[in-house]
Design a protein around this nucleic acid. Sequence first.
DNA 1: CGTGACATTGACAAGCGTCAAGGTTCGTGG
DNA 2: CCACGAACCTTGACGCTTGTCAATGTCACG
Lengths: 234, 234
Amino acid sequence: MYRQFEQASNVEPCLGCAARVHGICGSLNAADLAAFAATGRHRRLARGQTLMWEGDAPALVVNVISGVLKLTNVGASGDEQIVGLVWPADFAGSPFGAPMKASVTALTDSEVCLFARAEFETFLDTHHDLALALLRRTFVALDQMRDLMGMLGRRSAGQRVAGLLLALAKTGGVETDRISLPLSRQEMADLLGLTIETVSRQLGRLSDDGVIALPDRRSVVVRQQDRLAACAGA
Amino acid sequence: MYRQFEQASNVEPCLGCAARVHGICGSLNAADLAAFAATGRHRRLARGQTLMWEGDAPALVVNVISGVLKLTNVGASGDEQIVGLVWPADFAGSPFGAPMKASVTALTDSEVCLFARAEFETFLDTHHDLALALLRRTFVALDQMRDLMGMLGRRSAGQRVAGLLLALAKTGGVETDRISLPLSRQEMADLLGLTIETVSRQLGRLSDDGVIALPDRRSVVVRQQDRLAACAGA
DNA sequence: CGTGACATTGACAAGCGTCAAGGTTCGTGG
DNA sequence: CCACGAACCTTGACGCTTGTCAATGTCACG
């Protein structure tokens, strides 16, 4: 009785969690959620804080509640390549023990749920619904990754920048036209495989053409969605 | 008794299947494998044959036994972008009903196992081990995809071509130095985000430098692995 | 032997990276 | 509250890498 109450109190934050609707924990019933929540812990990350490093043995897996994280590789010449963004309700980590192929870093101040990898794996083994939910999410992540690859393939700098803005508007976006950028110019460049100068110039050009406005460095207002889509060229 | 015998006869090809060691079906015991095999069918594909089209409702999922398939998107200007390769024991398809984001086409003559999506999903729902095996594979596929993205990011044409050759040597490769290319020059270009001319020039340069030899258009001999790795630059 | 797909090679132009010089924003400390 | 410095961003000039266009070469198949 006491135990059940304790569990219920553990679950409480989960029940109001924004990520639960689409996150993998949404697959669990109340009792399992209680047990699951007991294995995880909530944590805040400041912008720029790195949770796991490329090459690490993966001790943790992460479920994002709010904010945006990035997955990065460092190239031979010390330059950083962003290989993925992790949005609320998304999952990151290497649940089957393979060494981390990317570092995980907060792009914005964020809230996450952390789980010890071993415990998470046990939970996966014993909770079929959780495994299926994670499988679903992973397939979605694969599709998104392929979209991103299309962006890096045979596309001009202008198309890449426009495409990124559209993607940010869609993913991060509430219904407003104002995008709050989770990425700095340098990070956009690292994601798109361009230089910071080229990103800056392309944004400038879009702004000069009246397609977007740049009220401050961390915001973009989409003025002409159709023309922006045309610039993205796909 | 009769039924069991029939199942066993169904399974027979599976037991000798090269893909089973690493494929998702390797997670199944004899009885489940029999039921699984009964839902799938074996099929040969000729080079160039397309199994599923971008945008299709996904009726099938595929497990590759031999050969190599490609996943492609077509851009706005009709150009083709390859967003992934599917090797033996790999899995392709959209098991949760999302429309296909890429076409699936055979790069070489291939053998595959096909499953009706609905039946496959039922099997996933009822066989936890299969779900976990597929989850493992999908995480590996995600990591590979990120490697590929690193290749398309901030890397020169020469680095991309060298990197692709190394990847092919590793993945497709037996212990020999001779790589049998599953890709035409055009397909290499589509994969690397380059033009066919640039790919050709880079291969020519590597050949002139003695790093590789090009005995015929579908083969590459790696003469100096270390220098090739240096050219790949990561 | 001929025909068509595929690949190589060359000349040229443009897009983007590189280098360099300002300009803006933000936080920190006087 | 202002001044200063550091991080971040923008803008310009220039050159290299790569795409484009075009011609030629080579292989596979009828």
